[in-house]
């Protein structure tokens, strides 16, 4: 297993001449693609991975400096693309859609197409621009994260790993796919929700599809439309699926829209 594979817990499924790289968003790990993957398995080679800090990634590779900006995450995406073979179709959820945009600006040759699920280039309101949140709201999120460690316990984890008489205990914890080191979760939350990548949008040359959910309180319609306006030649589809995770709330509809976009030439 290569360094990059181990660092990102890379899993490859499905068969096809083209590769889709599914990049999870803030809060969870690659397991979130569970309901969407079957729709592509027979036609595409599918690469799943965890960002450093999430899921079963190598936590020791976490660096507050490198991951202090989304650009650090984009560099990891490029390393993963090189590992699995460029070019790829990149599908990113939430903050990952912006990470994909940054990576494709750095290396246009590495990406064939981008699928952006619920993208937002800036979550914070700024004069005319309505991102949906104020800075104090992000502080509120950090407080909520502090009060919900979702089964993560620094002190407990190694003890549980050792508890060979009750292996189901460790499995149970591993199943909780939102489980993240609380400090990393908070840092990622800050980096995600305080980033502003509006100025990067016009630099993208890769064809992109924007999937906008109904009633998305994280990335509302106006934000999706802003992204569409500033990404030259981008496609925009408003889904019936509601909430912030169309791949969970409406996997069939989401898969249909993506397939339609991928079948287009260029």
């Amino acid at each position: 297993m290569s360094v990059v594979q181990r660092r990102h817990n890379i899993n490859i499924v499905g068969h096809g001449s083209k590769t889709i790289l599914f990049a999870h968003g803030y809060g969870c790990d690659q397991a979130m693609w569970r309901f969407l993957v079957p729709a592509f398995e027979n036609d595409y080679r599918i690469v799943l991975f965890d960002y450093v800090g999430a899921g079963k990634s190598d936590l020791s590779a976490y660096s507050r400096q490198k991951y202090g900006t989304l650009s650090g995450y984009a560099d990891d995406v490029l390393e993963i693309v090189d590992e699995v073979g460029a070019p790829v179709i990149f599908a990113g959820h939430s903050v990952s859609s912006m990470i994909g945009v940054l990576a494709a600006i750095k290396r246009p040759d590495a990406f064939e197409k981008l699928v952006l699920l619920g993208p937002s280039p800036c979550y914070i309101n700024d004069n005319e621009y309505v991102g949906g949140f104020g800075r104090s709201d992000i502080e509120g999120l950090l407080k909520t994260l502090d009060e919900n460690h979702l089964g993560w316990s620094r002190a407990m984890a190694p003890v549980i790993m050792k508890n060979e008489s009750r292996p189901e205990l460790a499995e149970e914890l591993a199943e909780s796919f939102c489980r993240t080191d609380p400090e990393i979760a908070k840092h990622f939350a800050r980096v995600t929700f305080l980033s502003d990548n509006r100025a990067d949008l016009p630099l993208l040359t890769t064809p992109a599809l924007i999937l906008q959910c109904s009633d998305d309180s994280i990335a509302p319609d106006s934000v999706g439309e802003f992204v569409h306006r500033h990404l030259r030649g981008s496609s925009f589809v408003k889904l019936e699926a509601s909430g912030h995770c169309p791949h969970l709330s409406g996997p069939e509809e989401t898969a249909r829209s993506i397939k339609e976009f991928l079948s287009r030439r260029g």
């Binding site: 803030y26 969870c28 992000i138 929700f193 912030h244």
Partner: peptide
Amino acid sequence: GGRIFYET
């Protein structure tokens, strides 16, 4: 803040 946590 709670709403963001709920959605994510």
